[in-house]
Amino acid sequence: MGISYKVQEYGGTVVASGERYLTATMVEALDPVVYPMLGHICPYDDTMFNSWQVHTLIKELHHIPDSHPLDPTIREDLRALCDAVLAKPHRQLWFIGD
């Protein structure tokens, strides 16, 4: 398996879930200085981004080269969930580590 991701409201209701999985290799290949949001996802624990952090995450997703292990289909999946976070207040993007 890998790192799943979902959009959750403050009360715990899951609004949307990712269709794919990240791997530790994908996350560890991201320099946290260049990609401060993606580079700080913990592959072995849960990581949560609030709506402010999601704005930065969207910018990062647009700057990852196509040759990177974080392939374009996963990036598109993540962008869709970022949009879901920003669609309503009190939503968060969660990464559920192994």
Rank of each mutant, 00 (worst) to 15 (best):
residue 1 M to R: 14
residue 2 G to L: 04
residue 3 I to H: 06
residue 4 S to P: 01
residue 4 S to R: 06
residue 4 S to D: 07
residue 5 Y to F: 13
residue 5 Y to P: 12
residue 5 Y to H: 13
residue 7 V to Y: 02
residue 8 Q to H: 03
residue 8 Q to T: 14
residue 9 E to F: 08
residue 9 E to C: 11
residue 11 G to H: 13
residue 12 G to Q: 01
residue 12 G to D: 02
residue 12 G to N: 04
residue 13 T to I: 14
residue 14 V to N: 01
residue 15 V to W: 06
residue 16 A to P: 07
residue 16 A to Y: 00
residue 18 G to W: 11
residue 21 Y to G: 02
residue 21 Y to T: 00
residue 22 L to D: 01
residue 25 T to S: 14
residue 26 M to D: 04
residue 28 E to N: 15
residue 28 E to D: 14
residue 30 L to T: 12
residue 32 P to C: 05
residue 32 P to G: 03
residue 33 V to C: 04
residue 33 V to A: 04
residue 34 V to I: 11
residue 37 M to F: 00
residue 37 M to C: 11
residue 37 M to Q: 12
residue 42 C to P: 09
residue 42 C to L: 15
residue 43 P to V: 03
residue 44 Y to F: 15
residue 45 D to Y: 07
residue 46 D to E: 15
residue 50 N to S: 10
residue 50 N to H: 06
residue 51 S to A: 12
residue 52 W to T: 10
residue 54 V to H: 04
residue 54 V to M: 06
residue 56 T to Q: 07
residue 56 T to Y: 10
residue 56 T to K: 06
residue 56 T to L: 14
residue 59 K to E: 13
residue 59 K to S: 14
residue 60 E to K: 10
residue 60 E to H: 07
residue 61 L to C: 08
residue 61 L to H: 08
residue 62 H to R: 15
residue 63 H to P: 01
residue 63 H to K: 11
residue 66 D to K: 15
residue 68 H to M: 12
residue 69 P to T: 14
residue 70 L to G: 01
residue 71 D to P: 05
residue 72 P to C: 07
residue 73 T to D: 11
residue 73 T to E: 10
residue 74 I to N: 03
residue 78 L to D: 09
residue 78 L to M: 13
residue 78 L to Y: 05
residue 78 L to S: 03
residue 83 D to F: 10
residue 84 A to C: 05
residue 85 V to S: 05
residue 85 V to M: 02
residue 86 L to C: 11
residue 87 A to H: 08
residue 90 H to A: 12
residue 91 R to T: 05
residue 94 W to H: 15
residue 95 F to I: 02
residue 96 I to D: 14
residue 96 I to E: 13
residue 97 G to L: 09
residue 97 G to V: 10
residue 98 D to L: 12
